[in-house]
Design a binder for these strands. Sequence first.
DNA 1: GTCTATAGGCGGATAGAC
DNA 2: GTCTATCCGCCTATAGAC
Lengths: 236, 236
Amino acid sequence: MTTAHGARARARIEVTAAIKDEARRQLAAEGAARLSLRAVARELGMVSSALYRYFPSRDDLLTALIIDAYDSLGGSAEAAHAEAAGAGPAQRWTAVCEAVREWALAHPHEYALIYGSPVPGYTAPQATVPAASRVGLLLIGIARDAYRGLGLARPTLPGELRPEAERMAADLAPDLPPETVTALVAAWAQLFGLVGFEVFGQFNRLVEDRAAFFRHAAGQLAQGVGLVYPQRGPAA
Amino acid sequence: MTTAHGARARARIEVTAAIKDEARRQLAAEGAARLSLRAVARELGMVSSALYRYFPSRDDLLTALIIDAYDSLGGSAEAAHAEAAGAGPAQRWTAVCEAVREWALAHPHEYALIYGSPVPGYTAPQATVPAASRVGLLLIGIARDAYRGLGLARPTLPGELRPEAERMAADLAPDLPPETVTALVAAWAQLFGLVGFEVFGQFNRLVEDRAAFFRHAAGQLAQGVGLVYPQRGPAA
DNA sequence: GTCTATAGGCGGATAGAC
DNA sequence: GTCTATCCGCCTATAGAC
C-alpha cells in the first residue's frame, strides 16, 4: 500500500516536473502570454486533457512557474549571501546583487515572467508572496546587520516623505531607521532596473563591459543605502 | 487630381490612425504578444485582409506602435523639460523623471511595450532607435548644461571601469567626463527601474505615497550623476 | 490518469474578384 | 482598397469510455 502510494506520488511529482520543464522551454519561445497547455502536452507526447489532472488551468501552471522562478532566484541570492558570510555588509550587498544579475542573465524568460510586463488577464495569487519576498528580505537583513554593527550611515530624507517612510519601516523593518528602509526600497527597485535593462537588451550597443558596469552601480546602490563601512571579515 | 490625391492620402492617414488606436486598445486587453490583426479588423468593422494594405504584417503594426509610444513618451519628457527651462539642472532632471513616471502611469500598456519584456519572436528594427533615444538625450543634455555651467560634481569611478567609461563617453557624449556619462547610464536604468516597479505593481502594499517616494528617489539619482548645485533660474 | 472526440472558438496570411 | 473564400493552423476546456 505505502509502496504503491509512494510510487504513485513519485510518478506524479516526476510528471509535474516534466510539465513545468517543458512549460519553461515554451516560455522562452512564446512568452508567458502565449503559454499553451496543448503545446506542452504535444511536446511531452501527452494529450492535452491529461494535463488538467496536474494543473486545473493554464493560470495554475503559470502560478507554479512564477513561484518556482522566485524561489530559484531567491535561492541563488541566498546562496551567494551565505558564501559571503564573513565579509562586510557592502561586500555582501554586492554579492547578492551580482547573484540576482547572474540568475537573470541565465534565466531571462523566467526573469521576464516575474519582473517583466504583467501577463494580461492574469493576477498572481497571494501564494506567490513568500517566494517573491526572499531577495528583499535578504537585502533588509544586510542593512540590519550593518545597523546593529554601527556600520550604517543614515541617508537623508525630505520632510515630505517622513510619514511614508515611517509607514514603510513599520511594515518592513520596524527595527531600522525609516530613512534606511526608504533607501532600501528605492535601491531594490533600482537594482532590478539595472538588471532588467541588461536582460531585456536596452544596453545593447551601449554598455559593453556590463559586468564591471553593474558591479560599480551595485556598489553605488549600497552606498545610497548607507552601507559605507566595508568591514573586512576573517580572511577569505 | 491633387484634391483627389489629398483626399485619399487623408483617408489613408485616418484609417491608419484608427487601426493604431484600436491596436493600442488591444494592447491593454491582450498584451503585445497576442496582438492580432484579425481582432483589430473585427473591432473596426473591417475584414482582416484589408488591414494588410496598411500594415504588411503584424510585426509592422507592432513597430509602428513602439515608435509611437517612444515618441509619445519622448514628447512628454521634452515638454516637461521645456517648461522647466528656467530652473537649474537638478530641477530639470527631476521634471523629466516625473514626466516619464506620469506618462508611464497614464500609458501602462505602452510602457510595457517599450520597457517591459521583449515580445518573443519580434526584434525591433533600427527604425525605432531615434524615438527610443529621446529621453536619454534629454538627460545627457541636462548634464551637459550643468557641466558647461560648472554646476556638475564629478562622480568617482573605479579603475576597472575606466576603459568602458571612456568608450561609452566617446559614443554618447564625448564632451562630458567619462565618470558623468557612466553615472548617467546607470541613473537612466535606475529611473526605469523605479518607474517599472510602480507601473507593474511591485510597489503594491509596499509603497503608498508613490509620488513623494519617486520625487525623492529621482532627486537622489540626480545627485548620483553630479547635479548637485541647484541653480535657481529666473523667478517662476 | 489517460484516451478519443467534440464544442466552439481563435490566429496569420494569400488569391482573386470587384 | 475592400471584399469573399480559403488554406492551414492554433487554443481552452469538457464529456465519457477505459
